[in-house]
Design a protein around this nucleic acid. Structure first.
Length: 375
DNA sequence: GATTTCCTCCCGAGAGGACA
DNA sequence: TGTCCTCTCGGGAGGAAATC
């Protein structure tokens, strides 16, 4: 049966969409500030591009994932494309494309560099035979991801320049041109002590990690400095970067740097929405019905049925009568330790909030479909 | 062979007109 | 008024060519 697009089925909210074929294979992943408008544009126009026309013909269903803001949709889209490699996506498939991090390397004399995260889990890397321990320079502190590559490079240039950090991959014997034009502190030749250089790098890391106000202040000072020296083009450029930084939402929860796996379970009346978060990356949602024959403690029964054999390191749930008892029970049955959290605030509560929004959307979708069938 | 620069293509946002 | 549909534009990806 062919797919019939109904604009009113889709929310006017930011999110990602996954277009699937008859066998539920993901054909295409996209994102939008306004899902309804974006999806509409696929179905109500004649596509000149053969590729796009072919995609539309092959769509049998569209799954929607709601997010909190545009940044989250950009980052989530990037993750989903790299994980699923949909055949009709061309952009963002390469591992070194899309939204990268800035990384202060873990070398004795750190430098700031661009870092592209491997979107595979540790297990997937091991299976692919590609698991290698990280090199020393890769074990640094990371900042981002940055949703605009131009801005990310501008930030890299600004911080490197501002703190006069070295950019050389291997330390030269003599100071290079960058030292002589004042862009590097010349630690290679001892113009600054190693201890002082490390302190400077630490300050740069601190500013990047959580001092957005400090970063803006520094950029404003630099802009004034350029203006006073009549370097108006540079000042204008700096102002542009300030405007971009001011617009960037500080918070996104779909791509974080963690070493463990979490399942986020939002329990509704009769169904559960499960978000799989592997090593900090939101990978997918599952909408599962709870067994109606279970009398008391349906949440506990559901968790035992799903996670008795195997599961993540942590379960984040919106309700649970006795999480401590549940944790003991899981440890006894599965012989491994699983943390169970019922958060009230913070990042984990935000993840639950995201699940709740997606749960409510799916319930509304189902009810609308039932009503349409009855009419 | 690696890196940089330039150019083209593609994607997605959003404005705005047509229509029921 | 809401929905449908077309069109334009900005920005990013990626390939080709140039340069080191």
């Amino acid at each position: 049966m062919s797919f019939r697009f109904q604009a009113s089925d889709y929310p006017e909210q930011p999110g990602c969409y996954l277009m699937k074929d008859t066998e539920q294979r993901i054909l295409y992943v996209g994102k939008s500030k306004n899902l309804r408008n974006r999806l509409r544009s696929y179905f109500y126009q004649k596509h000149k591009r053969r590729r796009l026309a072919e995609l539309v013909v092959n769509i049998r269903s569209i799954e929607v994932i709601l997010v909190n803001n545009e940044s989250e949709s950009l980052v989530l889209e990037n993750n989903l494309i790299k994980i699923h490699k949909p055949p009709y996506n061309r952009a963002l498939k390469r591992d070194n494309s899309g939204y990268a991090y800035l990384q202060m390397t873990g070398e004795p004399l750190p430098r700031l560099d661009v870092y592209y995260r491997d979107r595979r889990t540790t297990q997937e890397r091991e299976q692919a035979g590609a698991f290698l321990p990280e090199r020393k320079e890769e074990q640094g502190q990371r900042f981002g991801p940055f949703v605009s590559s131009r801005f990310q490079y501008a930030m890299l240039d600004f911080v490197t320049d501002h703190y006069r950090l070295r950019t050389c991959t291997s330390l030269p014997k003599r100071a290079c041109l960058l030292y002589h034009i004042g862009k590097c502190s010349g630690v290679c030749e001892g113009w600054i002590s190693e201890a002082d250089y490390q302190e400077t790098a630490r300050q740069a890391s601190e500013m990047l990690s959580h001092r957005r106000d400090h970063l803006l202040t520094a950029m404003h000072e630099k802009m004034t400095h350029y203006a006073e020296r009549l370097e108006f083009e540079k000042a204008q450029n700096m102002l542009h970067h300030i405007r971009v930084l001011e617009r960037i939402p500080t918070k996104q929860i779909v791509d974080r740097e963690t070493g463990w796996n979490q399942d986020v379970l939002y329990f509704g009346e009769r169904d559960v929405l499960i978000a799989r978060v592997q090593e900090g990356m939101l990978r997918d949602f599952r909408f599962v019905a709870m067994d109606p024959s279970v009398g008391s403690d349906p949440e506990e029964q559901f968790i035992l049925s799903q996670y008795e054999q195997e599961g993540p390191d942590e379960l984040i749930v919106n309700r649970m009568k006795d999480p401590v008892q549940m944790r003991k029970l899981l440890r006894t049955r599965s012989r491994r330790s699983v943390a169970i959290t019922v958060p009230k605030r913070g990042l984990k509560a935000d993840l639950l909030q995201l699940c709740k929004a997606n749960y409510e959307y799916r319930i509304a979708q189902r009810e609308a479909a039932v009503a349409a069938n009855q009419n």
